[in-house]
């Protein structure tokens, strides 16, 4: 998705961050889904609520590969070994855009009254040979998928509606198979750590999308057992 962002704003963000020594590396996140038949309604509502209503949302068509790097602990079984994931994403619709390498930390649900999930998030633009580089480092690809959808902005908030596709056997972008009959909806905001006030802003926006889509804090630990 970063690939679809306006490169100027990315550079602006980077320079201003470097100047002030502030890195927006905390992602405030709420997630939900909307079934395909209601996706258009949500699309229209988001168009109305978000910035640049006249020009409409940006679309994206991305391919994400998820690499894992296992840090082996002595005597640990493979399951106990700690691993962390690195995500490489490229824009299929814009091959000229830089690729994106993303690290996502463990999502923290925090207190019950904390409005959003909080996770650390570091994005960096890179060149296509990042895949080779990661492989050389010993990373192995864990899974990959294709996303297709819309990106909306509302101030600092980012709303994405994305359809998730499994890569087919043929390994070509044509043989995509949708995971579910729903769009994944994510509402996120990147901010430097300690700016918890923005979480309420996100919560308020999420309330405006009810009951069309329920954006919630999703507990990843519970999803581990979910099949």
């Amino acid at each position: 998705m970063a690939g679809n962002q306006n490169p100027i704003s990315a550079i602006d963000m980077l320079t201003s961050a470097l100047r002030s020594n502030i890195i927006p590396n905390q992602e405030y996140l709420l997630q939900g889904s909307v079934i395909d038949s209601s996706a258009e309604v949500l699309h229209n509502r988001l168009r109305g609520l978000c910035d640049a209503a006249e020009t409409g949302p940006e679309t994206f068509h991305d391919h994400e590969m998820c690499f894992s790097l296992k840090a082996s602990s002595p005597g640990g079984t493979p399951q106990q070994q700690q691993s962390f994931l690195l995500r490489v994403r490229r824009a299929l619709d814009h091959p000229e855009y830089p690729w994106q390498l993303r690290y996502l930390g463990q999502p923290e649900l925090g207190e019950k009254n904390q409005p959003t999930v909080l996770r650390s998030c570091i994005d960096i633009a890179c060149t296509p040979n990042v895949v080779e580089f990661l492989s050389e480092l010993g990373c192995r690809i864990e899974f990959e998928y294709v996303l297709k959808g819309y990106l909306f902005r509302k101030g600092r908030m980012k709303v994405t509606m994305s359809k998730i596709f499994r890569m087919g056997q043929a390994k070509s972008p044509d043989s995509l198979e949708a995971m579910t009959g729903s769009y994944l909806v994510e509402l996120s905001l990147l901010a430097p750590s300690g700016q918890d006030a923005v979480a309420d802003e996100i919560k308020v926006f999420a309330e405006q999308l009810r009951p069309l889509v329920h954006l919630e804090k999703i507990d990843y630990r519970r999803l581990q057992s979910y099949s």
């Binding site: 949500l42 579910t180 009951p211």
Partner: peptide, 15 residues
């Protein structure tokens, strides 16, 4: 308009 099971499937897949 939304199915919880789909939400979980999608997030588990992506995450």
């Amino acid at each position: 308009t939304c199915v919880m099971a789909d939400t979980h499937t999608l997030i588990a897949a992506v995450g």
